[in-house]
């Protein structure tokens, strides 16, 4: 038996190398996987690194901006350099605080408008591949975040919580290929499923050809599925392609959230309907 195993070792190993990925792939549901114990161990290494790199980059960008301000000031008036430096630093800092305040105030207004219990979180990393569009935030189970909670900003729907660790959560955004959000057109109440397509475009699937949908129409979440609260903006129709035959029409959506500038998000831990 051992002799046989030794003789065909290469083919047996090759068989297992081919078998493992095929067994692992979930053709039935196409679902993303949950974390296992050893996954969490790996994340315990990568998450702090990701946070540290994001923090360092923030500091570098902020330092670089301050340097540019100083350089201009020095050229203008050397005698006032010291005073100007302090002032400009304060201005930059205040401006950043002001921007942050504006963003947070908008989020607070959004939270009050929809009467939601939310957790504010910061985006610390993006997906490892360019084809999928998940993000990672710096809040997890310890902040009361669980799987399938809605993630929004004051601009609209961001996505849903895919999986969590103690201190981080992965969010599958509405741009992701595997994301699906039930939405309705605000004007005509036409219904469809918003699915991800590219880096800045989604598509509205299953919208009937006879539905009244025009470019510029705003889409809002329908509240079906129990993840997203009803009425949160999803995006605006950018292109409608209606063929003379068929059941559905092709509708492209530009998300209301600017994902390229996404810094903070709100995780909806409880909506009014849950109370």
């Amino acid at each position: 038996m051992i002799k046989y195993l030794k003789e065909y070792r290469f083919y047996i190993t090759l068989f297992f190398f081919l078998l493992i990925p095929i067994v692992a792939i979930d053709t039935a549901t196409r679902r993303e996987r949950d974390y296992r114990i050893y996954d969490r161990a790996i994340l315990a290494v990568t998450s702090p690194l990701q946070s540290a790199i994001t923090w360092t980059l923030d500091q570098l960008v902020s330092g670089f901006q301050n340097y540019i301000f100083l350089w201009n000031t020095r050229r203008d008036n050397l005698a006032l350099l010291e005073e100007n430096r302090k002032l400009l630093n304060s201005i930059a800092s205040l401006r950043e605080t002001q921007h942050e305040n504006t963003r947070l105030r908008k989020m607070l207004q959004f939270q009050e408008k929809f009467r939601l219990d939310t957790v504010l979180a910061r985006v610390i990393a993006k997906d490892v591949s360019t084809e999928f569009r998940a993000i990672r935030i710096n809040r997890g189970e310890s902040s009361g975040i669980h799987k399938d909670m809605a993630v929004v900003t004051n601009e609209g729907v961001v996505g849903r919580v895919m999986r969590t660790t103690k201190n981080t959560s992965d969010i599958v955004t509405i741009l992701d290929l595997l994301s699906a959000v039930d939405a309705i057109v605000e004007r005509s109440r036409a219904r469809g499923i918003v699915e991800g397509m590219t880096d800045d475009v989604c598509q509205l699937k299953f919208a009937l050809r006879t539905d009244d949908i025009e470019p510029g129409d705003v889409l809002i979440s329908s509240g079906l599925g129990g993840i997203f609260p009803k009425g949160v903006p999803v995006g605006a129709v950018s292109k409608v392609k209606r063929k003379p035959f068929g059941i559905t029409q092709e509708v492209e959506i530009r998300p209301s959230v600017d994902f390229s500038k996404l810094e903070e998000v709100l995780v909806v831990t409880r909506t009014l309907t849950d109370v």
Binding site: A24, D39, F132
Partner: peptide
């Protein structure tokens, strides 16, 4: 497997 826990891709895609 390390790649799979850093993405939303379907399970087993990266392994394949």
């Amino acid at each position: 497997n390390v790649a799979e826990i850093h993405t939303s891709a379907p399970q087993g895609l990266f392994l394949c």
